[in-house]
C-alpha cells in the first residue's frame, strides 16, 4: 500500500489537539499541586520560639543536697541533671542521653550517670564510658551564690 502523506490540515488539527491536551494536563497538574502543597505545609509543625532564658535558678538550696546524689531539673524546654559527687563537688549536664534522647539518671551505688533505655553509662565528667551513647553529655555551667544554685548554658 502506498504511504499516504499527512495532509497539512491534519497536522494542524494534531497540533491543536496536542496544545489542548497540554493545557488540560498542565492545568490538572497545577490543580493537584495547589491542593497538595498547602496540605503538606499544614502537616509540618511550626517552629516554636525557644525560651530565651539564659540561666535557671534551681528550686533547691545548696544545703539540701546530699553528697553522692543526683537530681533532674528543667533547663529551658529540656531536662538537666545536677550531681553532687561524694567529694561534695557540684556538676551539671544536659540530662538528654546522646544516644536516643532518653532522660538519664544518677546511680548512687555505682556513682555514674545511667540511661535506662539502652543501658548507656556516663562518668561524672559526662563522658560516655559504656553502651551505645556516641557522645558525652552536654555540660552546663554552674554558679553558686550563697545558698542558691544557678545553671547556665555551658
Amino acid at each position: 500500500m502506498p504511504e499516504q502523506q499527512p495532509e497539512p490540515q491534519d497536522e494542524q488539527v494534531d497540533h491543536g489537539r496536542r496544545t489542548v491536551n497540554w493545557l488540560l494536563g498542565s492545568s490538572l497538574g497545577i490543580l493537584f499541586v495547589s491542593i497538595v502543597y498547602p496540605i503538606l505545609k499544614y502537616l509540618v509543625p511550626p517552629k516554636l520560639a525557644e525560651p530565651t532564658t539564659f540561666s535557671v535558678t534551681l528550686p533547691w538550696k545548696l544545703a539540701e543536697l546530699k553528697a553522692n546524689s543526683g537530681r533532674i531539673f528543667r533547663f529551658r524546654s529540656l531536662p538537666g541533671i545536677l550531681v553532687k559527687t561524694s567529694a561534695g563537688e557540684l556538676r551539671a549536664f544536659s540530662a538528654v542521653c546522646t544516644h536516643l534522647q532518653c532522660t538519664v539518671q544518677y546511680r548512687e551505688e555505682r556513682q555514674d550517670i545511667w540511661c535506662a533505655c539502652h543501658n548507656g553509662v556516663y562518668d561524672l565528667n559526662g563522658k560516655n564510658i559504656s553502651g551505645p551513647p556516641p557522645r558525652p553529655l552536654e555540660p552546663l555551667k554552674l554558679n553558686v551564690r550563697g545558698d542558691q544554685i544557678i545553671v547556665m548554658k555551658g
Partner: peptide, 29 residues
C-alpha cells in the same frame, strides 16, 4: 513527666523488643 529520668527496666511493646534489644548491642560507632 518530661522532667523525670527514664525508669529502669523500660522496654517497648513486645513486638518491637527485638529491634530495641538489637539497638542495645550496636556500638556507638
Amino acid at each position: 513527666d518530661p522532667f523525670a529520668p527514664a525508669p529502669a527496666g523500660i522496654r517497648p511493646e513486645w513486638y518491637f523488643v527485638f529491634m530495641f534489644q538489637s539497638l542495645k548491642y550496636i556500638p556507638a560507632k
